[in-house]
Amino acid sequence: MTFLPILTPWLFWTLSLLLIAAAAYLLVKGRSAARWRYALVVLLVVLAGARPGFAGAPAPVASTDLNVFFVVDMTPSSAAEDFNGAAPRLEGMKADILALANEFAGARFSLISFDSKAKVVLPLTSDATALATLTEILTPSSALVSQGSSISVANKLLAQRLAAARTSHPERPRLVYYLGDGEQTAAASPEPFTATAKLTDGGAVLGYGTTDGGKMRDYTFGSDKPGAYIPDKANDFKPALSVIDEPALQTIAGALKVPYVHRTSTEGLGSALSKAAPTAASTAESPAGMDNGAGRWEIYWLLALAAFGILLWEVGDLTRSWRALQRPAMRGKP
């Protein structure tokens, strides 16, 4: 539980101590039901004015206040032709990035791609045109030089960029959209997204591909000149198939505490948005939303309501007492 007083903290707590001291003094001078009610009202009003609350509630945040990070799988499997029928997965990723950018118009965007290594394609910028341009020219990495990739290879770089964004603009929520198929081809196990999760305020993991798998063309010579299908050396050089690994993607989503959405077409992106609403920006120095009150479950109104109820009781008690005093006077009149 945290407190956000309605006045400057030193002034609020000074006045609160004076009010509590006055209530205590009256109780010491003589205890009565009325004075106990007065003391309780003072205590409730002071607590309500302190605005107690708990972190974690969703808070509406303007798009212009958001930092949105796209982490895109550029391994050869992103060329697998099983998105929305027989389109390459990367085409679906590109369409979703552009759709999300349109939904978050005015936000700042960053684009990070990964294959065997991760790199920043676009640093944080409010230039949506730059994002669209760089997204359109994304191309799967070459199968000829691929040495296996990890689905967590972008983890450290992403954590660094998130930390830098938090330092420069701690008030801005940071959304992470991870787009990939979850296929782990590196020998080592994926590393946990622990550090990244602490810096993430929302987003989603978007999965692409099917359980039947898709054949992959080689893009060694560029996006405009896709080559032959990548062969599977262990299967008589027939076209290799890439299969989505949804449990792996769900593990990433669970670590980041964001929803997982399986994308099979460019339609229905609303589910990735409706479940990915950010809480207020989290910082290492203070719990989520403590700077401005957003992202908190406020309970001051319960205390204020209780104080109001006691005051109504007091007004009713005074009214009954006044009427009782009026009755003898009325009887004495001719």
Rank of each mutant, 00 (worst) to 15 (best):
P278G: 06
A276W: 00
W313Q: 08
T319N: 13
P287V: 10
G289L: 02
L269H: 05
F308Q: 01
A281M: 06
W301L: 14
A272G: 15
E267L: 06
T283N: 02
P278N: 11
M290G: 01
S274H: 08
G293F: 06
P287F: 10
Y300K: 05
T283P: 05
R296I: 12
N292G: 10
I299C: 08
A294I: 03
F308M: 14
P278L: 02
T264C: 04
W313A: 13
W301V: 09
L269F: 04
L302Q: 12
E285S: 12
R323Q: 14
K275C: 00
R296N: 08
S274Q: 08
I299Q: 10
W297Y: 15
Y300R: 06
P278E: 07
Y300C: 00
R263E: 03
E285Q: 11
V315P: 04
W322Y: 12
A276M: 05
P287N: 11
L318F: 09
E285P: 02
T264S: 12
I310D: 00
P287L: 14
A294S: 08
A280C: 06
R263W: 03
A307M: 02
G293T: 02
T264H: 10
T283W: 08
E314P: 00
G289V: 03
G293L: 02
E298Q: 13
W297P: 03
W301C: 05
V261G: 00
T266Q: 04
A288P: 06
H262Q: 12
Y300H: 10
A277D: 02
I310Y: 01
A306Q: 04
L305P: 05
T279H: 10
G293D: 00
S274Y: 06
T264P: 06
E267S: 14
D291R: 14
L303Y: 07
R296M: 14
K275G: 12
S274V: 04
L318N: 07
G309E: 06
P278W: 02
A288E: 13
T266W: 03
A284G: 12
E285D: 10
G270S: 15
L311I: 14
A284Q: 13
T279F: 05
S274R: 10
G270Y: 05
L305H: 11
E285W: 11
A306T: 13
F308T: 09
I299W: 11
Y300E: 07
S265M: 03
G295R: 02
L303P: 03
V315H: 02
R323V: 01
T266K: 03
W313N: 06
E298M: 10
I299T: 09
G289E: 04
A304F: 04
P278D: 07
G309M: 13
S274T: 12
